[in-house]
Amino acid sequence: MDHIGDDHGGHDHGDGHAHGHGLSDYYLEQLVTVFVCGAMGLTAVLMYTFGRLDVILIPALRPWVLAGGIALLVVTAVRAVSLWRSVSATRDDHDHGTPGHVHGPDCGHDHAPGDHAHMPGGIYLKTIPLMIPLLMFVMGMPNSSGFSMENINSRLGKAVALGELQDVAAKSGDTLTLDFGELNMSAYDPGKRDAYEGRKVRVTGQLKKVSEKDYELFKLKMTCCAADMIPLKARIKSEIVIPQSQFPDHQWVTVEGQLQFVEIPEKKMFLPVIRIGGKGGLGLQKAQPE
């Protein structure tokens, strides 16, 4: 950690000569450190409090940021109190004509030479990048708007060609309400494919147009943070034209229709396809974002 040992040692404190630049630089650097770390901790707490983490982290990780912010504030407070006390002690020492010492060799622990923060401007240069997240928070970023449509479209990639679909026999039973993840997982499970194929299902996701009667249904899934977001995908095939004015790209919808699984050889996978637009109507309803 930073200390004032080396250059301080060269001063003569016995003749009433004021402490040199080494001591004032040291305190200034420590104050900057306390300020920046405290601000970072406070920002973490506020990010959690104002829900700014909701769009970038999964729920399980958000309390960790809060805890990290609080821990940082506590450590900063301890350091601030300690600095305050050492300033008083130094002043007293100075008044009595004895060498003041702050966190130096007599602390009884080792000081790494690389910790020595007397490189000109070093601490201030470090402050610049650390101000970026704080400034972003003040400017209201990140906000709830999420990734741009272009970014999401690039993550989705090109829709695979399905070709002509073969009809599957309808199965009786109540409409199954499937979570998007469950729908996606069932495509990889032969048993579930057999069980679900032909059933009427209800799934909520977002739309992306492929053609007038052919839409992708997707949901973005975050594992830890927004940087690892991946799209889970299914397909909607309609008997009738889907009005895009009513259902634009990225609109959240609940789809109700007959499920089948279509093999995509080049992707080595089965894709869930929901067929809609038969006698029961379009089978699409606008939904709240999930």
């Binding site: 973490a44 970038i56 982290l57 940021v65």
Partner: peptide
Amino acid sequence: DFVLNFSSILWEAMP
């Protein structure tokens, strides 16, 4: 998009 990617990497690692 930059802000989202940057913030998510930074705040995930911060604690």
